[in-house]
Design a protein around this nucleic acid. Sequence first.
RNA 1: GCCAACGUAGCUCAGGGGUAGAGCAGCUGUUUCGUAAACAGCAGGUCACAGGUUCAAAUCCUGUCGUUGGCUCCA
Length: 580
Amino acid sequence: MSTQQASADAIVDVRYRMRHSAAHVMAEAVIKLFPEAQIAIGPPTDDGFYYDFEVSRPFTPEDLKKIEKLMRETIKADRPFSGVSIDRDAALERFSEQKFKVELITDLPDDEEITVWSHQSWEDLCAGRHADSTGKIGAFKLLSVAGAYWRGDENREMLQRIYGTAWESQEELDAYLERIEEAERRDHRRLGRELDLFFFDPIAPASPFFLPKGTIVLNELVDYVKQLYVKYGYQEVTTPQIFNTDLWKQSGHYDNYLENMYMMDVDDREFGVKPMNCPAHAVLYAANTHSYRELPIRYADFGRLHRYERSGVTHGLMRVRTFSQDDAHIFATLDQIAQEVNSFIAMLDEAYAVLGFEKIRMALSLRPEKRVGTEEMWDRAEAALTEVMESTGREYGAEEGEGAFYGPKIDFFVPDALGREWQLGTVQLDFSLPERFDLQYAAEDGSLQRPVVIHRAMLGSLERFLGVLIEHTAGALPIWLSPVQATLIPIADRHIPFGEEVVQKLRAAGVRAEVDTGSDRMGAKIRAAQVQKIPYMLVVGDREQEAGKVAVRERSGGDLGAMDVDEFVTRVAEEINTRA
RNA sequence: GCCAACGUAGCUCAGGGGUAGAGCAGCUGUUUCGUAAACAGCAGGUCACAGGUUCAAAUCCUGUCGUUGGCUCCA
């Protein structure tokens, strides 16, 4: 282990202990104020801590202030932490008034050591790792109250969770709070409005309306994906939006996904709006006979999907009720799985590199308890995916039991501005769909064989992808995705005709450009363009007009000086075409 | 779906039982300006929706819808 790594781990450990200790001190304060409170658990988190309580009424902001005050007293008193091991009966006795602790103790395995950690004025059932004393807790702040189910089970008690954050020093705490504020400035919902990309209206809850500018971005993304599809051998198809429920019964969605579907009765028959493309692609495949020579067949579909999501789970563009994906289904032989997944990951890497996504987490999800298919199929499929993952030479997590019931999968996660992870890409093997739709191909020996289906999406939901992209770039999208790529800023009205000429040249070269003809001063026009994150601002005044040039300013603030109009047109068109 | 908070002009927000406010954006006029905000005027709201209390409700109460932060879910 490197020295650098060791010191990073040390910081993580110090923070873990400090935050874990802060949780204890907070519980002590809550019990002082609410003696009847039932306490649940209070662990440290990535940047803070929380503790769950069952109380007669929800906490108010005033309560948080009082709790903070009591916590400061305990921290100031600098009470030492110590842990002791006790036996089960003693533990049950000691926490007999605390039903959640009793439940925890009862559920601990027989050979598990039971410890109690105390900082003198308070003690808690706890596995430990604490600061030496309460004085080591540093700068902290209570952030919010939220409901949380006991043991994460929606059928159990709803508890009140208090979230807090704690850092070694006030400076660190301030820096953390500043990071949160910066993340809020990057919030895609806020930028989506400011940049005129999209908005939401209660008339269609959790369903975005894309304005012309937002639609340009989506279309550019799709155009790019289609370009990759040519290179990687995909065929685009177009399928219906609404299907008779016979399809959903055959695919299994009627039994397993009905609560997420929009259903309707027409002509005394029941129809469902598609939440996924796969059944339609199975119908497409089954419409013809297929030879092994044709495989793999890759059907791509940008069709719009609708999924009813429970109220309370939707979030801006990240989780919506209607969206489209760069979805495709690959019909292949078992032997082709590895190469197909490999090829998909190569394409995904290519796209993510172009889009500037670096922090990707990959997770391999393996067979769940409830599943279809034979053990041999699962063995082969998991082996194929594992082999592919290993061959990438990159880190990935293998998660037992997290696979879909129809096959194992690899998911690709990218964080948003606040560090919350969203699944974008996915590649999933499916043994169920080919069975349900009796899909076949003629093998080399003339026998009829069952293909495997690979579900895969690279960007995933285009809406979610755009949301993450906006947060990553703080709205300064790469030039090829920018709705307006260059804006002409005439210094006085007499320069507008020249500006229009330049814009015509830019547009002829495929550049999205416009003239700011308003009566604002140049400074205000520049500011407006900066706020809109337009990549290039082209100032034209007497000097430029006379010389047939434009004064080029980049949104980064860089001044490239005066350039010949043709030179700039060539340069910017090149930049756009290469997706630089 | 659950817990909580919030919903006032296009946006960001103030007001909090007695005739609806600001900034920005918009429109009009003046200004024609050299790299992040010229000046003036005008217009803009069933205070989410529906009930209730009251002489009087944006304000208090109830419900509904929506949004936000969590939880659960995420084939």
